[in-house]
């Protein structure tokens, strides 16, 4: 008997619940902290981005139409399934340069973030929604609604906890997401896609595009069917001309400290709807 051959994983994109390679056929090399080769990761093109936005748009009304309670259940399920695979995530974080202790701590935080935002699903409306006093015979109230399809540019580090810190609040209100994960450490984001695919998250709600952020950003910001973009993980010295791309459809552009948690990270991606309901007889 010879020695058993290694089975290497092909790190692919995640679009509409499926794992396609990039339509361009291109890949990028991911190297470990010591410079050694780790894996070839699919390099998403603008057409992959177009497909991902289409998938996200297709999934949005169903995701927003579910009960807040059900969305909470599904986000909690993400935590459960990640917990069962934490050793794989830890190995990948260590491969990309974390110490074992840091990786374990990051996993704790990443999983807890799902639980934290799962809880917010059916509660944030009560915190940010209002009943407004008006000078007339109307019951006037304001409720948050999801803005639609959101592009999430995840922070480079921490690659896993940072991504979830930005992705989870987008999902809470019923948005769907196109995520561009960390370029230097994309492995755990791809494994996260596998977790998403097995956690009752409907196909298309989360789409993951590994690739150079600067290649994809102009297309994401210029895409008229994307309602908001989270640039938390984008370079701070982004060319203003690229940012101007977002103006075309009055896209909401958000940048936040990845450590920010809470209802305002959720309402960043909400539209507030005010209803005037006649009362009296």
């Amino acid at each position: 008997m010879g020695e058993r051959l290694d089975i290497q994983k092909t790190y692919k994109l995640f679009i509409g619940g499926a794992f396609p390679r990039s339509e361009s056929g291109r890949t990028t090399e991911v190297v470990a902290a010591d410079g050694s080769f780790v894996a070839n990761v699919a390099k998403a093109s603008r057409k992959d981005l177009r497909d991902a936005v289409k998938a996200a748009r297709g999934a949005q009304s169903d995701w927003a139409g579910r009960t807040a309670y059900n969305r909470g259940q599904i986000l909690y399920r993400m935590a459960e399934v990640m917990e069962g695979r934490r050793s794989q995530f830890e190995v990948e974080l260590v491969t990309c340069g974390s110490s074992a202790a840091d990786a374990a701590a990051e996993l704790d935080e990443a999983i807890d973030l799902w639980v934290w935002y799962a809880g917010w699903c059916d509660k944030f409306q009560q915190v940010v929604g209002t009943v407004n006093p008006v000078a007339g015979p109307f019951f006037n109230f304001t409720v948050p609604e999801p803005t639609g399809v959101v592009g999430v540019v995840a922070p480079e580090q921490p690659s896993l906890a940072g991504l979830i810190a930005r992705l989870a609040p987008v999902l809470v209100s019923g948005n769907t997401a196109v995520v561009i994960p960390s370029e230097v450490a994309p492995l755990s984001a791809i494994s996260l896609s596998e977790t998403i695919a097995t956690s009752d998250v409907p196909g298309g709600v989360i789409n993951m595009l590994t690739g150079p952020k600067l290649d994809l950003l102009p297309w994401l910001l210029g895409h008229l069917d994307v309602n908001a973009v989270d640039l938390t993980g984008a370079p701070t010295d982004l060319d203003p001309a690229v940012l101007d791309e977002a103006v075309g459809n009055v896209k909401r552009v958000i940048r936040r400290d990845p450590a920010d948690r809470g209802p305002y990270a959720i309402t960043d991606f909400c539209e507030m709807k005010t209803i005037w309901h006649p009362i009296g007889r």
Partner: peptide, 9 residues
């Protein structure tokens, strides 16, 4: 236009 559009338009 060089930009992707969507069903809203």
């Amino acid at each position: 236009t060089g930009r992707y559009s969507g069903p809203d338009y």
